[in-house]
Design a protein around this nucleic acid. Structure first.
Lengths: 212, 212
DNA sequence: GAAATCAGTGAACATGCGTACACTCAAAGT
DNA sequence: ACTTTGAGTGTACGCATGTTCACTGATTTC
């Protein structure tokens, strides 16, 4: 890891930013083993190549570090959703596209998704609260996207909100499965995608039929 | 807590069992604050009214204590399902009955459900593995029950298994919600029940329509 | 009633922890 | 050229932890 005192020194604030990122990356990596709450300030510092007291130059406590990780994870997630929306394929068949995007996104940013899934229920109080809040926001954002879709455009906004909640809940569950998935098992991956497809289709079809 | 050396002494093994239960109860209670992994052997011992070294007379490590709690939690869960099956009302309308039973069961044994929901993703490795295994077993057991129901009796066993998986997943999600629910808010409780009803109906209706 | 058993005790240890404090020494500001 | 700034250092502290060991004394066994 060792990011401090590079051979060719960078500008002061650039170097500070590099150390900050090293701390975030270290915390994320160490969290995967036993959860963020088990990781000590000294472990993170050691892994980031700084002395424990230097940690305080970047975060005032481990709780604040946790919140920074939540922010980082969700900004990753949001960027992915934004990219996916640009793809015109999504408008034709949201369900298949969503299943693909989900699996790909989680594979690319396993650590961040794992962090959210784990700390959502297992983390320190402040972190849990922050994640819940972000997920609530996310449900509302997704509802806006869903409301524009052909099958859904004339549903009541309450119904759209509920479907959005179901989607996000299933997204979290599926993300958990992908995270637990051992590497190099494309069969399992396809199986999870297929499961996600079925579940989403179930929700959309069932909801429409039940209401009409 | 103080269970040791009662005024009127009990038999040796009865007293041992009482201490064991005190340890289990202490660990369960202390886990609610910050998760089982944060609870130390000394904290549990202190709360149970024994000296740290006496802990080892009952469990060889905190991991073993965790496994005992998993066992206890699932035996609670299974007893509830068994009781619910005796109720003839269940055969008429599984969905409404299941929603009622779920909310009631979780309210009665909040601590155990909270433990499972939390440690399923946030706990020590051995505990996570044990919980996953129990939940897998549970999916299969539920599938057996579901297969006997009128709407479902002629489905393929793969389909029943998948629906069972969806049910259990939603049960876990709903249990999480009930656990997070503040006390004395019957409105929220009804809201969660209604949500659970809708979701289960969605699954059954959507699945049948989509397949036929 | 003597001997064996064993749940619970209490002192001691090495280790890792968070944080306080005084420090260094390049880069940035003047 | 000088001063100021501030990221990173090193020591030191008090505290909680898991585990060890020799122990006590009531219950059980014989």
């Amino acid at each position: 890891m060792k990011v401090t005192e590079p051979a060719q020194s960078a500008s002061r604030q650039a170097q500070k930013e590099r150390t900050r990122q090293a701390i975030l990356a270290s915390a994320l990596e160490l969290s995967q083993e036993q959860g963020f709450a088990q990781v000590s300030l000294r472990q993170v510092s050691r892994h980031a190549g700084i002395v424990p007291t230097a940690f305080y130059r970047h975060f005032e406590s481990m709780d604040q570090l946790g919140l920074a990780l939540v922010e980082q994870s969700f900004s990753t997630l949001r960027r992915m959703i934004r990219d996916a929306q640009r793809d015109p394929h999504v408008f034709e068949n949201i369900i298949d596209a969503a299943a693909d995007v989900l699996v790909e996104a989680v594979k690319q940013s396993k650590a961040h998704f794992a962090f959210v899934a784990r700390e959502r229920v297992g983390g320190p109080e402040v972190v849990r609260t922050a994640i819940r809040h972000e997920l609530d926001l996310f449900v509302s954002e997704l509802a806006v996207v869903l409301a524009r879709l052909p099958n859904i455009e004339n549903w009541s906004s309450d119904d759209v909100q509920m479907v959005s909640r179901l989607f996000v809940r299933n997204m979290v569950s599926n993300a958990e499965e992908v995270v637990e998935m051992p590497d190099g098992r494309p069969d399992l991956e396809e199986q999870i995608k297929e499961g996600a497809r079925r579940q989403m289709r179930l929700i959309v079809v069932g909801f429409r039929d039940w209401r009409s």
